[in-house]
Nucleic acid binder design. Sequence first.
RNA 1: GGGGGUAUGCUUGAGCGGUCAAAAAGGGCAGACUGUAAAUCUGUUGGCUACGCCUACGGUGGUUCGAAUCCAUCUGCCCCCA
Length: 424
Amino acid sequence: MHNVFEALNERGFIKQTTNAEQVAHLLSEGEVTYYVGFDPTASSLHVGSLVPIMAMAHLQRAGHKPIAILGGGTTMIGDPTDKTEMRPMLSQEQITANGKGILAQMQRYLNLDNGVNADNLQTTAKAGKFLNNADWLLSINYIEFLRDIGKHFRVNEMIRAEGYRQRLERELGLSFLEFNYQLLQAYDYLCLFQEYGCRLQLGGDDQWGNILAGVDLVRRVKGERVHAVTFPLLTTATGAKMGKTAGGAVWLDPQRTSPYEFYQYWINTDDRDVSRFLAYFTFLPMDEIRRLGSLKDEAIREAKEVLAYEVTQLAHGKTEADKARAASRAAFGGGNLDAVEMPTSAIIAQRLESGIPIMELFHEVGLANSRSEARRLVQQGGAYINEKQYRAIDMLVNADLLEADALMLRAGKKRYHRIVLKEN
RNA sequence: GGGGGUAUGCUUGAGCGGUCAAAAAGGGCAGACUGUAAAUCUGUUGGCUACGCCUACGGUGGUUCGAAUCCAUCUGCCCCCA
């Protein structure tokens, strides 16, 4: 077993550890059960969650056993860390439903007890677990909890933690409910240690304090040394949060973010982020990544294409990745636009007889959020039909513009939408 | 429980009772330049049946010819006292 710790480190996954040598040693000794917590506030993960997932996948491929924890119980509290306000609380039903979606997505990267969801996934890896911490948190008895767990926490220390301190010093208060978040998260670690012998927790660097609380708790209650590793919080070179675009988050759920859009997100990666992202989000060997990362100027587009293709393939499978790549090449490389996968909608053929106002058309297919926006788009020269710009706002789109019974709309430089005809 | 403060468009944040769809910045969008990158420059950024109309400045109800701006009340948040 080669040293996974080194591999993770080389790929940039490691920000802080309880003790680097000890963690490395632990991972080289034999099978280690490790866990990462996930937020169940949405029914899909977004690309930000890919960092922990990729890290988990690397560990599993190296023979270790993952546990993914759905924060169904802790979400009912709301993590105050680095939040400007309280999180909305979700119902258990909602959380369970969200968990289903999240599990399916994880199964593309990890082999969990509940199965796998990707053809290319190494099934030789030991199956891990997907658990909901609501299972043990919801049945907690308050008095017992205070006595057995609460006694190990010093309020003095807790309020010194950065996350809490900010909330205490600034206008926004901190409710007692939120104050307990750390105890519950620490309790998770204790439970997982007891039940599954879990000895390593990983998480975003903003979770460092909470994770350490768990490490301490295990030491105090069980007298055992367990470990923690955090991932750096990713931002893009321009300082934006990873995985956010104007349209919102980039989701793994193809219903929310189509494979094409997903692919485009990666293609549009800033030059400076390319090699970092290749290391995080693909399984390509580091030598290859270094080669791709050293490409300069225009040539770096090759690296972006590899990045986009690899990441899309992991998230959506080879077929979808091929389609997305073909569509992307066609749209931006002057290829044949007709045969490829694009956001498409159908309109009734008859409507073209009398002509459809161009503004209405762009609005209708979602290329503009309102008619006013569509109007602006046209006026400013951002509206194209079959690669021809139209600037007249009173222009009517009729059957004369059809090419092969279809219209390819384009808004701005990058957003395409294809229109086909239907009878009625 | 008492006293005070605050609530503005995607965000931050200005807004004398009329000239406010509301300063400014950020963000977004479009154009130019380019490599589907970055940086830069320009335009634009509530909606609509579009030189006009409608909806908006926490909720409701008032005062006024006229309110985001004044009053009352409700709600949320913050601060001080208890």
